[in-house]
Structures are given as structure tokens and as C-alpha cells.
């Protein structure tokens, strides 16, 4: 089955992409560039760099911009999926949804309307096992945004490794954050994945942070050999 992966650039969509590649044929990535940094549907930090990830994975990218108005942004996603079907013959869509009924049900409705299959391979996954698998499989993931207490500025650009996973687990127990950031507590960006043919090297980046809200903006990056 030919699948398009809805990709925000973060760990969940790219891990889901890898899982989909193990079982079906992934033919493209689909990215929605939202101008609304508080979009419920689409993650925004560094989504412009999904093109680099697509290049790293050797996959074509369908990219559509949205102003990010609630519910209306789904029309832009609809356009993107129609384009992906026309250009690459997708029969289904893969998302990295873990817990969000809001996101999952909207994508399910859209796929149903378009006659596409919808898969969420991380749906209600065991979050600690998933995070460990992410590290074990060699995904290179950095924190690209923080949006809740107790994250301080030092988290921006930090790699998710064994030490940071240990801290995230403590935060999950003490502050009730979702370990995977599914509650919007933090966002991530993937620099390397097991199925990437090249990895992404950051050449230039800047951070902005205030009151438990911060962005790690990658302003220069390139593909390099692994």
C-alpha cells in the first residue's frame, strides 16, 4: 500500500514513518507549514526544514502553507493529501499521533472523506518504551521548542539521549508532563533517523525563551554524509 506520511519534522511523525516503511511502501512526506505558532493541529518549530528531512530520507515532499485558523487549516491539509494522491498515488496516510483524539479524529475524518486509509502506529503506545526505542534505534532528536514548566532555556537544542530522557521521566512524575510531549509541553526536530541516507547538520541556530516558552530556530542547516 502506498502511503504518505504527515510530517511535522518531529520525532513522532518520523518514527511513525520508519515503522510504516517496515510494513508498507512510503512514497512521500506531507508537511503543513502553519503560520500560527499555537496551532492545535500542526506543529510549527522548524517545519520549514522538513524538506531537508525528505532529502535525507530520499523521499519527495508535498508541502502546503496554512495561516493556521482552527478547523480551516484542515482544508489546507485536504489540498495537500489530494496533491499527494495525484502526484504519488497515495492510498493512505500515516500520522505520529499518540494520544490526541483532537488531531487523530480530524485526520481520520479527512481520510474517510477522501477514501484514504489512515494509520497511527504510535497510537496509545507505551510512552517510556517508545522513547527508549527512539534512542536505541539511533534517532538523533533535539528539542526545538518548550511550552510548559519546568523546562528552562537549557532544553532548547538539547539532544534526547539517555540523560535527557531520565530528566523527562522525572518531569513526567513531578510535574505531570506527558513523557513524549504529546500534550504540547515540548516539540522536537529530527536530525538523523535509521532510514535517512544522509544526516542533517545544523550550521546556524538561535534561541528565544521567556516564561517557560521558547523556540530553537534552525536558520542554517545542510545534509552531510553519515
Amino acid at each position: 500500500m502506498k502511503l504518505g506520511v504527515l510530517c511535522s519534522g518531529g520525532k513522532d511523525s518520523l518514527f511513525a514513518c520508519g515503522r510504516a516503511m517496515e510494513k508498507e511502501e512510503v512514497v512521500c512526506l506531507v508537511a503543513i507549514r502553519s503560520e500560527n505558532e499555537d496551532s492545535y493541529m500542526f506543529h510549527t518549530p522548524n517545519v520549514a526544514l522538513v524538506a531537508l528531512q525528505a532529502g535525507a530520507a530520499g523521499l519527495p515532499l508535498i508541502e502546503v502553507k496554512t495561516v493556521g485558523v482552527k478547523e480551516e487549516e484542515l482544508l489546507d491539509l485536504r489540498d495537500a493529501l489530494i496533491l499527494a494522491r495525484e502526484q504519488y498515488g497515495i492510498e493512505g496516510v500515516v500520522t505520529g499521533a499518540i494520544l490526541s483524539v483532537y488531531q487523530a479524529s480530524r485526520v481520520q475524518r479527512l481520510c474517510h472523506e477522501l477514501g484514504l486509509w489512515c494509520f497511527n502506529p504510535l497510537w496509545h503506545t507505551a510512552q517510556d518504551e517508545y522513547m527508549q526505542e527512539l534512542i536505541n534505534k539511533g534517532f538523533e532528536v533535539i528539542i526545538s521548542g518548550v511550552f510548559s514548566a519546568p523546562f528552562d532555556e537549557s532544553w532548547l537544542g538539547r539532544r534526547i539521549d539517555q540523560a535527557s530522557l531520565s530528566s523527562l521521566k522525572k518531569y513526567s512524575e513531578q510535574y505531570g508532563i506527558t513523557l513524549t510531549g504529546e500534550g504540547g509541553e515540548y516539540e522536537t526536530f529530527v536530525l538523523d533517523a535509521p532510514f535517512f541516507k544522509k544526516r542533517i547538520e545544523i550550521q546556524e541556530a538561535s534561541s528565544e525563551y521567556c516564561n517557560y516558552r521558547g523556540f530553537f530556530r534552525i536558520t542554517g542547516a545542510r545534509l552531510v554524509e553519515k
Binding site: 515503522r19 510504516a20 494509520f119 496509545h124
Partner: peptide
């Protein structure tokens, strides 16, 4: 057998 649906519809129940 072994479809992506297994991850989404069987594993959460198994947990």
C-alpha cells in the same frame, strides 16, 4: 497479518 493496524488496534489493548 503484520499490518500497521496491529500497532494501532491490537497493541494498545494488549497493554
Amino acid at each position: 497479518e503484520g499490518s500497521l493496524g496491529f500497532d494501532e488496534y491490537v497493541l494498545p489493548v494488549a497493554r
